[in-house]
Amino acid sequence: GPGAHGRAATALPRTARLLDELELARATPASLMARWASAPDGTAVLGRGPHGPLQVDLTREGPHLLVEGPAGSGRTELLRSVAASLAASARPDRLWLLLVDGAGGERGEGLGPCTELPHAAGHLVASDPVRMRAFAQALGAELKRRAELPDPAAQRPRVVAPRTPEPEPADPARPLLPRLVVLVDDLDALVAPALGSPGRPAAGSVVRALEAVARDGERLGVHLVAATARPDRTAATEAARRARLRVLLDAPAPSPGPDDPAPGRGRLTHEDGRPATPFQSGRVTGRIPRTSTLRPTVVPLEWARMGDPPTRRPVRELGNGPTDLALLASALDRAARSVEADPVAPLAPDPTPR
Results as ranks from 00 to 15, higher is better:
83 A>Y: 01
30 A>K: 04
82 V>P: 11
107 R>I: 00
111 L>G: 11
100 V>A: 13
61 E>I: 01
33 M>D: 14
85 S>C: 01
61 E>C: 05
63 P>Q: 10
53 P>H: 10
45 V>W: 07
89 S>I: 04
47 G>E: 00
85 S>M: 00
35 R>A: 14
102 G>P: 02
108 G>Y: 05
94 R>N: 10
39 A>S: 15
36 W>N: 12
52 G>Q: 09
32 L>F: 14
75 R>I: 04
72 G>M: 07
56 V>P: 09
41 D>W: 06
60 R>C: 08
51 H>M: 03
74 G>V: 01
114 C>Y: 03
93 D>K: 02
39 A>Y: 12
71 A>E: 03
60 R>G: 14
60 R>S: 13
39 A>R: 15
46 L>P: 12
41 D>F: 05
62 G>M: 01
77 E>M: 10
84 A>H: 01
107 R>D: 15
104 G>F: 02
52 G>L: 07
73 S>F: 04
62 G>D: 07
40 P>Y: 04
82 V>C: 08
77 E>L: 09
58 L>M: 02
111 L>F: 10
96 W>G: 12
66 L>G: 08
105 G>H: 04
92 P>Y: 11
113 P>E: 12
115 T>P: 11
95 L>E: 05
105 G>Y: 05
88 A>W: 03
104 G>Y: 03
112 G>E: 10
102 G>W: 00
84 A>E: 10
44 A>W: 00
89 S>Q: 10
114 C>W: 01
50 P>F: 00
106 E>D: 12
79 L>E: 13
94 R>W: 03
81 S>K: 10
44 A>I: 00
54 L>D: 05
103 A>M: 01
102 G>E: 08
90 A>P: 14
50 P>G: 02
43 T>V: 14
108 G>N: 10
109 E>D: 14
76 T>L: 08
91 R>H: 09
33 M>P: 07
30 A>N: 04
67 V>Q: 13
73 S>D: 05
60 R>D: 13
60 R>T: 13
69 G>H: 06
44 A>G: 04
110 G>L: 04
95 L>K: 08
89 S>A: 15
97 L>W: 14
81 S>C: 11
69 G>K: 05
62 G>N: 04
65 L>T: 01
42 G>H: 01
116 E>G: 13
85 S>F: 00
91 R>T: 14
89 S>P: 08
37 A>L: 10
67 V>C: 13
56 V>D: 03
101 D>R: 00
66 L>S: 13
58 L>D: 05
59 T>M: 07
64 H>K: 09
31 S>C: 09
71 A>T: 07
77 E>H: 10
116 E>W: 02
112 G>R: 11
109 E>G: 09
76 T>F: 06
84 A>R: 00
53 P>W: 09
112 G>N: 02
63 P>T: 08
109 E>H: 09
89 S>Y: 07
83 A>R: 00
77 E>G: 12
45 V>I: 13
85 S>H: 03
69 G>R: 03
61 E>Y: 00
36 W>T: 09
76 T>Q: 07
56 V>Y: 03
80 R>H: 14
56 V>K: 07
70 P>L: 06
90 A>T: 07
85 S>A: 09
55 Q>N: 07
114 C>P: 06
36 W>E: 12
92 P>S: 14
56 V>G: 08
105 G>Q: 03
70 P>H: 09
112 G>Y: 02
89 S>E: 11
110 G>W: 02
48 R>T: 15
97 L>H: 13
